[in-house]
Amino acid sequence: QVVASPDQYVKHPLQNRWALWYFKNDKSKGWTENLRLISKFDTVEDFWALYNHIQQPSKLGFGCDYCLFKDGIKPMWEDDRNKLGGRWLMTLNKQQRHNDLDRFWMETLLCLVGESFDEASDDVCGAVVNVRPKGDKISIWTSNCQNRDAIMTIGQLYKDRLNIPIKAMLGYQSHDDTSSKSGSTTKNMYSV
């Protein structure tokens, strides 16, 4: 009689339940109408089942986004757990859509679901990938732009994890600044 070890049939629980959202740029509809919840998951196996099932970012149309956020946090500045926060923002050039976009996004998801930022992981709200003609963007959103230590930990570990060259600078912007920016660029509160 063969008894399977629990490791073979028990799913591996994640620290958090996560929700994956998809934003499709349909100008005829309002912004929030274009934001769709795809699915939620709280195990490693269910994460992969979802990830393997959906399109890679590089295959999405311009103006589309994926957002992965902790369950209960909406992927928008206005959410109570986002409004005091900000984001580490990585802007990619056009060539990087082919070479880096998809693998950077997967690595970002692995950092989130795997809680790769030690205690600072508690400050993470979610991550967003924006597919845009002028250059795609990947960002990690945190809950409080004043938590400098946690934010710097996240930025440094994330940069190391993606193997981004030292000279390539990653900037952190508060949502407040981003939402009220006058010029085209938003000032960075922190950088790594």
Binding site: Q15, W48, E115
Partner: peptide, 18 residues
């Protein structure tokens, strides 16, 4: 409290296991 952490190697192994 405790934190459930998975490193990238483990996560990638889970992806490929049946």
């Amino acid at each position: 409290g405790t934190r459930i952490i998975y490193d990238r190697k483990f996560l990638l192994e889970c992806r490929s296991s049946p």
